[in-house]
């Protein structure tokens, strides 16, 4: 998935996260701000990188502002932001199968 414009998904409500994805020249630049960073920072980065990898996003600047979201929420918000940030069109099979 090629990131061609800036896009956002999610909210700053408790138990949600807001994901911003924008184009970048080389590699993934991930910035994380989380209310549970001391306990789950490592896990959130892991989930984010796995999801981006699965979506085949190679170059992007990704900002996650997390308010205690579960892994499934984080994955969904990243998928959505990436889809919005790309020229992706057509049927979307959410939840692990989109490419």
């Amino acid at each position: 998935m090629k990131i061609s414009k800036l896009a956002v998904a999610g909210t700053l409500e408790s138990s949600d996260c807001m994901v911003t994805i924008e184009p970048a020249k080389k590699g993934i630049d991930l910035e994380l701000d989380s209310v549970v960073i001391r306990q789950y920072g490592r896990r959130i980065r892991e989930v984010a990188m796995e999801t981006l990898d699965r979506l085949e996003v190679k170059n992007a600047r990704v900002t996650i502002v997390d308010k205690g979201a579960l892994d499934c929420t984080i994955k969904a918000r990243i998928e959505c932001a990436a889809a919005r940030a790309s020229e992706f069109e057509g049927r979307v099979s959410w939840g692990g199968t989109i490419r």
Partner: peptide
């Protein structure tokens, strides 16, 4: 099982 096991706070 819902939230994952937290890392120990340093």
């Amino acid at each position: 099982s819902i939230v994952g096991e937290p890392d120990k706070v340093e």
